[in-house]
Simulated scan of single mutants.
Amino acid sequence: MSYGSSLLKTLGTALALGVGLMGAGQAVADDPIKVGFVYVGPVGDAGWSYAHDLGRKALEEALGDRVETTYIESVQEGADAERVIRRLASSGHKVIFATSFGYMNSVQRVASSFPDVYFSHATGYRTAENVGVYNSRMYEGTYLQGVLAGHMTESNRLGVVASYPIPEVIRNINAFALGARSVNPDATVRVIWVNTWYDPARERQAAEALIAQGVDVLGQNTDSPAIVQVAQQRGLYAFGWDSDMSKYGPDSQLTATMLMWGGYYIDTVKAALDGTWETHNIVWGMQEGMVEMAPLNSAVPEAAAADFHAAQAGIMDGSLNPFAGPLRDQSGTVRVAEGEDMPVDDLMTMDWYVEGVMGSIPN
């Protein structure tokens, strides 16, 4: 049996941090394992933190009274994150999921003080004896978005509203461009960096600025549905991100790349319960069920849908790698030779644009 609670008594210091605090689940006689989730944005009903919270709910459904979960939303990266993660560890949480790249150093510092707590950090690369890392091949979804965008654009100008210039975001931008140019070699991608994961007003301004540059299909690597809403209002096309955002743009959303975290959360907590938890660095995608695509908009022509589904099938069966050679950067220099795949380490540290992406990456 599960009950919601504010957990303000347990984590009262969070009030001083100015972060949202909520919980789900209440201890039962068998002392369930306490699992904490730290979110960079509000849970809301769409986007990155929403997708992670769906995973938390899947964990609760799967393990029932064996688990008690807490989530803290809108936790800023940096000192606030470290205080929140430390408070979760000190209040009896045995497993803690830190769900933003910028939490990486905070996780490392807290984990060293709590060797008996298991920490999992999303999208990072630093592990420890009690720290695992998990990531998704979300770029598989952005490649498929690009295939549709290459078909649907009339101006051959595509746009991406991007958060921070870190490898995971650069990968997604490049995959979007590669997918588009696989069906439309004339397509180009313009990027506006907003330096935030979640700021609907700033995201909206960036989308409008891209439209002013002639962009007629919009992508994003930010967390709010603002881009889909702008496209809906302007009669253009866009893609949902992290979750299905079609209710914000029923005419504009062509599809959405959706992240399904539940399987990983269930496996990780089960391992903690049965004593088999091990340090790990996993990257799951469509084959493992972590990345899925929302249904296609009825406006997608048959030819575009056929190319989309063919590419999706190729990713699923391993015959299509979005970062297979020949792969050139903006200058035309071959970075991956024909017949080769980009090494995983290079992919995980990507800091350059492929051909077709305009502009430069901020320092």
Results as ranks from 00 to 15, higher is better:
F119E: 11
S120V: 11
H121D: 03
G124P: 08
G124R: 05
G124K: 06
T127M: 07
A128S: 15
E129C: 00
N130I: 10
G132A: 14
V133N: 05
Y134M: 11
Y139I: 10
E140L: 11
E140M: 05
E140D: 14
T142V: 13
T142P: 09
T142H: 15
Y143S: 01
L144E: 10
L144Y: 06
Q145W: 06
G146S: 03
V147P: 03
V147E: 02
L148P: 06
L148Y: 12
A149M: 09
G150K: 07
H151A: 06
S155T: 15
N156M: 04
N156H: 14
R157A: 04
V160F: 08
V161G: 02
V161Q: 01
V161I: 10
P165A: 04
E168F: 01
V169G: 03
V169D: 06
I173A: 01
I173W: 00
N174S: 10
N174E: 06
N174R: 02
A177N: 02
A177H: 04
L178K: 14
G179W: 01
A180K: 11
R181V: 07
R181P: 04
R181D: 04
V183M: 12
V183L: 14
P185C: 05
P185I: 01
D186N: 13
A187T: 07
A187Q: 03
T188H: 07
V189F: 11
I192A: 12
W193P: 05
W193A: 00
V194W: 15
N195K: 09
Y198K: 02
D199R: 12
R202L: 14
E203G: 08
Q205K: 12
E208I: 13
L210A: 12
L210M: 13
I211G: 08
Q213E: 15
G214T: 06
V215W: 07
V215C: 06
V215T: 08
D216S: 10
L218M: 09
Q220P: 02
N221Q: 13
D223F: 11
P225R: 09
A226C: 11
A226N: 05
A226W: 05
I227M: 10
I227V: 15
I227W: 07
V228F: 01
Q229T: 13
V230M: 08
Q233E: 15
R234W: 11
G235R: 11
G235C: 08
L236N: 02
L236W: 11
Y237F: 15
A238Q: 10
G240C: 10
W241R: 07
D244K: 12
